[in-house]
């Protein structure tokens, strides 16, 4: 579904992505782990188009999206969340989701009819909010949500774009124990519908969710495979997993 081929990226002398290739097939959750500064976020930025790769290709299905802009990739079906939550703070929770839906439902070059009155968008937004567990937050300005709720809202926004593929950058970051467990359940549920590339530090989450695991160190994938295999890989253990994992 998603394939990355020989991706390279440098910031000046710093090579943050070195010849990275990986592929994620339909129905799969592929986790990328690695220490701070390994280049995980930079990788997601390149897949979603926020940053342009120096060389290599990104394929979504059969389509080469490497040279498309951010919005074109979104329209092509790449949905993503950010490590630092990114929503529309002055919009209500529902309007955040409705705005994402609107991008995929008819033209946005309509200048007169009030968008907030579009029942079709609002109803679908409500369905998605129920799915992520924010149904009772509908009318609140997004800026008033708690950190955990914002992470859920961002997932709802990503889902509203009817993505073919989801890129999640540390969705568990900053969540408490119960919030994490709820989010793991949600992601487990989403996995059936959306192939996911998951960047995550939370090892419990990774081992519960991932079908495949890649370890990224200094911009390079040093091990990749089924989680149970990678777990036993001595290089990966030394570089990142430590003995506790």
């Amino acid at each position: 579904m998603l394939a990355i081929e020989n991706l390279n990226k440098s910031f000046g002398a710093l090579r943050v992505t070195r010849d990275v290739s990986l592929s994620v097939s339909r129905g799969q959750c592929h986790a990328v782990i690695g220490p701070n500064g390994a280049g995980k976020t930079t990788l997601i930025h390149q897949i979603s188009g926020v940053l342009r790769q120096d060389s290599g290709r990104v394929l979504l299905g059969e389509r080469d999206v490497s040279h498309l802009s951010v919005w074109e990739r979104a329209q092509a079906g790449l949905g993503r969340t950010f490590q630092i939550t990114s929503v529309l703070p002055t919009f209500s929770v529902q309007e955040n989701v409705a705005t994402a839906l609107q991008a995929k439902t008819g033209s946005s070059l309509r200048f007169f009819a009030p968008a907030a009155d579009e029942a079709a968008l609002n109803d679908r937004a409500q369905t998605i909010l129920s799915r992520v567990g924010l149904a009772d937050r509908t009318d609140l300005p997004a800026g008033n949500l708690s950190h955990g709720e914002l992470r859920l809202l961002e997932i709802a926004i990503a889902l509203a774009g009817s993505p073919k593929f989801l890129l999640l950058d540390e969705p568990m970051a900053g969540l408490g124990k119960t919030e994490s467990m709820a989010l793991i359940d949600l992601l487990n549920d989403l996995r059936a519908d959306f192939p996911i590339l998951l960047v995550e530090h939370d090892m419990d989450a990774v081992f519960q969710l991932a079908d495949a695991l890649s370890v990224l160190v200094d911009g390079e994938i040093i091990a990749t495979g089924a989680p149970s295999e990678v777990r036993e890989n001595p290089q990966a253990r030394a570089a990142y997993l430590g003995d506790g994992a």
């Binding site: 926020v50 919005w71 529309l88 309509r110 009819a113």
Partner: peptide, 19 residues
């Protein structure tokens, strides 16, 4: 309108609107 909603979204968070 729909147009204005996109405009306001871009004011709030241009990167989010783009994504």
């Amino acid at each position: 309108s729909r147009f204005g909603r996109v405009l306001r979204a871009a004011r709030d968070n241009p990167q989010r609107a783009e994504v």
